[in-house]
């Protein structure tokens, strides 16, 4: 039996990048400490703030919600949960039940915003339209753009000071690599533990950014949290290739993911000089903030022969 480096109990995790073995209790303590450390180091949350957390029901967002509850009690913050229901049959309906259960057990107000209600079509319907119209865009493009836009709008309408997303170390490193591959300076420059505040946007923060995906999963399993572990049916493409490449790299060379993150964090201030500043305007069609004449969501909807049905969300509370 292999033992925990710190307390001698049976080890549950080999943190190879640090050269230590951790038991269930020490891993749970370590994840909680890293979460608190990220908040303190980057000043992500301030006492008394109203915080919205984006929760899909997956392990990352459920863990974020549970960690935030503890933090909010200590710092006198108010917490609300937002779920975007994209309308993915057999996937989102299952995870939605898990979010409701978690929010109820934690006593958090939970708001749901659905693609169908706002855009008049579910993601499944958009995917079918995209195929029929040969737009050559995959469902993740529609989902990513529209989900981000609705999350921001919901957080703003709920008067949140911050919007927490549950991106973990793996998500962040994958985004860094994807933007390198696409030479997308603008998106690369926006990555980091917190997005700088801009008019119309609720500042987005990522307190799980320095916790590897496997440690987040272990935290959820070891604490017995109810999480949705199914794979989205639309997952694929370059994102998956980059994820698999990084996981192979980490398996062969532990600490690679942290090194990529540290390197990016050191380079980021230098990017400011080469990324053009853009003026924020209001989308002519829906009024949401954008750098163009119409926002990306409205542009994508137009390409599918759809249009936004509602300007305000008036997100219904989950029951």
């Amino acid at each position: 039996m292999l033992k925990c480096t710190f307390c001698g109990r049976r080890a549950a995790y080999n943190r190879r990048y640090a050269g230590v073995l951790l038991c269930d209790r020490c891993l749970i303590k370590s994840v909680e400490k890293r979460f608190r450390r990220a908040i303190a180091k980057y000043k992500l949350l301030l006492p008394g703030e109203r915080i919205a957390v984006a929760v899909s029901g997956g392990k990352d967002s459920v863990v974020a919600m549970h960690l935030l509850v503890e933090h909010c009690k200590l710092k006198n913050c108010e917490l609300v949960a937002i779920t975007i229901d994209e309308g993915i049959k057999g996937y989102r309906d299952q995870s939605m039940a898990i979010v409701r259960e978690n929010a109820k057990s934690l006593g958090i107000e939970h708001f749901v915003v659905s693609f169908k209600r706002i855009f008049g079509a579910t993601l499944d319907q958009m995917a079918r339209r995209a195929r029929a119209r040969k737009t050559e865009l995959n469902p993740c493009t529609y989902c990513g753009v529209m989900r981000r836009s609705l999350l921001n709008q919901a957080a703003r309408e709920l008067e949140a000071d911050k919007l927490v997303t549950a991106h973990n170390l793996d998500d962040e490193v994958q985004a860094i690599m994807l933007n390198y591959v696409r030479a997308d300076f603008s998106r690369l420059h926006r990555l980091g533990p917190a997005y700088s505040p801009r008019e119309g946007f609720v500042p987005r923060i990522k307190p799980l950014r320095e916790i590897p995906e496997k440690e987040v999963a272990l935290y959820a399993l070891l604490r017995g949290l109810k999480v949705h572990l199914a794979v989205c049916p639309y997952v694929g493409g370059i994102h998956t290739e980059i994820r698999d490449f990084l996981n192979q790299l980490e398996a062969n060379h532990p600490n690679s993911k942290f090194m990529i993150l540290r390197m990016f964090d050191r380079l980021k201030p230098q990017l400011a000089g080469i990324v053009p500043e853009f003026e924020m305007r209001r989308c002519k069609s829906c009024g949401e903030p954008t750098s163009a004449i119409i926002c990306k969501s409205c542009e994508l909807l137009k390409g599918l022969g759809l249009r936004r049905l509602r300007k305000t969300l008036n997100s219904p509370k989950s029951r």
Binding site: A12, L21, A217, L229, Y234, N247
Partner: peptide
């Protein structure tokens, strides 16, 4: 839940839980 370096014994039941769900 155990570490991958644990030695196996005859009759062990091993459960593999995939944790990567995103793209």
């Amino acid at each position: 839940i155990v570490v991958e370096e644990e030695r196996l014994a005859d009759g062990d039941l091993i459960e593999i839980l995939p944790i990567v769900t995103g793209g």
